[in-house]
């Protein structure tokens, strides 16, 4: 049970950090970092500890049910944000990242938290590898989405300069464009890894590499969207709003991969999530 207590303590810190980020954003102050960043670090550390405790208590990687998935998504997103966004100039993006992490935490917190015996299909050393790679991909794609949203916001504000806008706190278009590109490329790399590791596991578990079940299909779509982003960026020079919108689409596809596919097709192979 200690891991659940840890999770809820971390949830409180996520909430506090989100509040701090939003308050600083509205207050327009640059002294944000004093409260918002340390609270996020506290949240992610507590949360990491809770996940390790759960791993020890369960005896297997705690990436198997819906509670664990949403919890892991929030944790992965925050870790990647803190690492990738460690530079001061991206600090303002926390106002987009923290609510997303908090939302995922809130979803997790209403789901059953009990540790159940692992279903046979998941009893494999592929579990932590495949899930770890997949959630890293989700985190990078989400950050690419965050950068894209910030880019669109900044771009719009630049078209109406006299209107008072929060965009003035955001990084420059140039910085946001660079961040989109870097996050998307990492998302694409890890998504490739997720699909490959999933296929290898499928081959081992079911004897087939590919079965066109909803989640596999959705992950392939996500992969294609990110690949398309790079193709259009380089050949058609979509280094503008169009590229950013494509990354927004990529995030929607991640959501479908992550949650939607299971909700739409509950009898798929990934249905152990729900």
């Amino acid at each position: 049970m200690a891991n659940v207590v840890g999770f809820f303590l971390a949830a409180l810190m996520y909430g506090a950090s989100t509040l701090a980020h939003v308050a600083c954003w509205i207050g327009g102050s640059r002294r944000c970092a004093r409260l918002s960043r340390p609270s996020l670090l506290a949240a992610v550390s507590l949360h990491g500890l809770a996940i390790v405790l759960r791993w020890v208590e369960a005896g297997y990687a705690p990436f198997s049910n819906a509670f664990e998935s949403f919890s892991l998504y929030a944790w992965g997103l925050t870790v990647v944000y803190l690492l990738a966004g460690s530079l001061r100039r991206y600090a303002a993006l926390g106002v987009f990242v923290t609510p997303l992490a908090l939302l995922s935490i809130l979803v997790a917190s209403v789901l059953p938290t009990r540790i159940e015996p692992l279903v046979p299909v998941l009893q494999s050393h592929w579990l932590p590898i495949h899930v770890g790679i997949s959630f890293t991909a989700y985190a990078f794609s989400t950050l690419a989405f965050v950068a894209a949203v910030a880019y669109l916001h900044q771009e719009r504000a630049l078209r109406q300069p006299a209107r008072r806008s929060w965009a003035r706190q955001l990084p420059s278009l140039e910085a946001l464009d660079g961040l989109q590109r870097r996050m998307a490329v990492l998302g694409l790399v890890f998504m490739t890894g997720a699909i490959m590791s999933g296929s290898m596991w499928a081959e081992k578990a079911w004897g087939v590499v590919w079965v066109w079940e909803p989640q596999q299909t959705a992950s392939l779509v996500t992969w294609f969207i990110h690949a398309l982003y790079f193709y259009l960026r380089h050949s058609a020079h979509w280094r503008d709003r169009r590229g950013a919108w494509l990354l927004v689409g990529g995030f929607v596809s991640v959501l479908v991969t992550f949650v939607g596919a299971d909700l739409l097709a509950p009898d798929s192979h990934h249905d152990f999530l729900f």
């Binding site: 900044q154 990084p171 420059s172 278009l173």
Partner: peptide, 22 residues
């Protein structure tokens, strides 16, 4: 915010440049 944001044309131009370029 009494001293925030540019209040001359040339500084506004520089601020806008800062929103576009790093």
């Amino acid at each position: 915010a009494i001293s925030q944001h540019a209040v001359s044309v040339s500084h506004v131009a520089v601020e806008l440049a800062g929103q576009i370029y790093d």
